[in-house]
């Protein structure tokens, strides 16, 4: 399964988000390929990710994307990430 952590440039927020997604998925024992990408990359990808995680401010920028979109309010809250990822993936 492919998961994208998305931010404006794909180098800051998305990398932080990916780091915590990896941590949560390993606790949930779910295997996935998580990549930190820019909005442009997420939109242009030939094979879209199954799930895209993004901060609420940016969700309008990926309207129409062929992936399930999960918005994360607090990227440092492992509880929020765990809850949203397990609801989506299980």
């Amino acid at each position: 399964m492919k998961i994208y952590a998305v931010c404006g440039a794909g180098i800051g927020t998305s990398v932080l988000l990916k780091s915590n997604i990896d941590k949560v998925l390993s606790v949930l024992d779910i295997e996935a390929e998580v990549s930190a990408v820019s909005i442009a990359t997420a939109m242009d990808a030939e094979s879209p990710a199954q799930v895209v995680l993004i901060t609420p401010e940016l969700q309008d920028q990926i309207k129409g994307i062929a992936s399930e979109v999960i918005t994360i309010d607090n990227i440092f809250d492992l509880g929020e990430l765990t809850q949203k990822l397990s609801a989506s993936l299980s």
């Binding site: 931010c7 440039a9 180098i11 800051g12 401010e57 940016l58 309010d73 990227i75």
Partner: peptide, 23 residues
Amino acid sequence: ASTQKLGPYFVVAPGIAIAHAAP
């Protein structure tokens, strides 16, 4: 330029922002 284009998206958690631009 990045925040004017995309808004304050790098306010990533309550009370916490990480301002940055691309390399």
